[in-house]
Simulated assay, not measured.
Amino acid sequence: MIETQINISVNRKADINTIKSILIRNKIESPVYLTEFVGNFAINFTSSYEEWELDKLISEAFPGYEFTTDLRHGRKEIRVEISRYQSELCTTNWGNPIDNPLNETKYLIKKSVEASIQFNPVIKVLFGPDEQTYHINIIPGINNSTQEKGFLLVDEFKHEADPETADFFPDKLYKTQLDAFYRGKDKLENIVDRDFKDYLEIKKKEKQQREKIPRKIVREFVKACNNFAEESILKDLSENLIFEIRINWKQKLITNGLEEFKNYIDSSYQEICRRDFKIKSSWSFMEKDIIISLETSTPTSEMDEDVKSFYRIRLNIRLEEGKITQIILEK
């Protein structure tokens, strides 16, 4: 036979009559012991079943309270405590040991008041360094057929909408503003994706426009070097030009100032003119610096100019206020 020992602790003495009334109405078929202590009443009895209906009746008798087995979230006043215990020696009517005998305690405490989640209808979205502002507009609504009240999501995400004139999505009446807000965020993603695509197109055009003049200056400089047109070579160079040649990241040559550079290109050992440089497609812009790859070729010997060795060099050109202030040729 399965017996359940039930113990109830009533921690407000004023509640004892309410609990007694519930026990009487529930027709407990065994003696019920009531013991008074200084701070509470203890009730205990043994039953042939778990008497689960007591939980419901007791919680209904104390509005605003509920039973819980979890007291981890802070210590609240325990108004009523109910424990059930079954011995491991209990057996079923067939004489078999019972599985998982009860040993649990429930506590009647005040119901937790869930704080409503507050939200800002203004959504900020970063497109790179640029901040965009969107609005999730929500207005009160009513279902005319059922008179149910709720909230509607407005079909406007770019600006704060006028609730009197705003168009709304008629597909759903939301029970809470938060429900409408979450749905609005879902819809907003498609709008943001389209706007971001347009933003990238605009930035691409701005970049092309911004790089147009620097590209022209670099192309003209390389062309002038190929033709050894000294006047054109010097046209866009700063008076304070620094020219440097590096081989395997080690400095091989450096000139300071325009005059030294002129002497260099007029020298027999210059390596920048009449080389038939070809600019490859990859351009890199890093603030004031422009980095390009140049393909060039050199005859293997004075006697055999048809046999050529092709290789690439890297040219780093710094532009400031429309003038080339630094050239680094890297091999």
Rank of each mutant, 00 (worst) to 15 (best):
Y134G: 03
H135Q: 14
N137D: 04
I139H: 02
I139P: 01
I142R: 08
N143P: 01
N143I: 00
N143D: 15
N144K: 05
S145Y: 07
T146N: 01
Q147Y: 10
Q147L: 08
E148P: 00
G150W: 01
G150Q: 05
L152C: 09
V154F: 13
V154A: 15
D155K: 13
D155M: 08
K158I: 13
K158Y: 15
K158M: 11
K158L: 15
E160A: 14
E160F: 03
A161F: 04
D162G: 03
E164S: 09
E164D: 11
T165Q: 06
T165V: 11
D167I: 07
P170S: 07
D171A: 12
K172I: 14
K172V: 14
L173G: 03
L173M: 11
Y174P: 01
Y174M: 02
K175P: 00
K175L: 12
T176M: 09
Q177F: 05
D179Y: 03
D179S: 07
D179C: 05
A180M: 04
Y182H: 07
G184Y: 04
K185D: 01
D186W: 09
D186V: 12
L188M: 04
L188A: 06
L188P: 04
E189W: 06
E189F: 11
E189H: 09
I191Y: 00
V192C: 03
V192W: 05
D193H: 14
D193W: 08
D193G: 02
R194Y: 05
D195A: 05
F196D: 01
E201C: 13
E201Y: 14
I202N: 12
I202M: 12
I202T: 15
K205A: 10
Q208P: 04
Q209W: 09
R210W: 07
I213K: 15
I213W: 08
P214D: 03
R215T: 12
K216P: 00
V218Y: 04
V218D: 03
R219A: 09
F221H: 12
F221M: 14
F221R: 03
V222H: 05
K223Q: 13
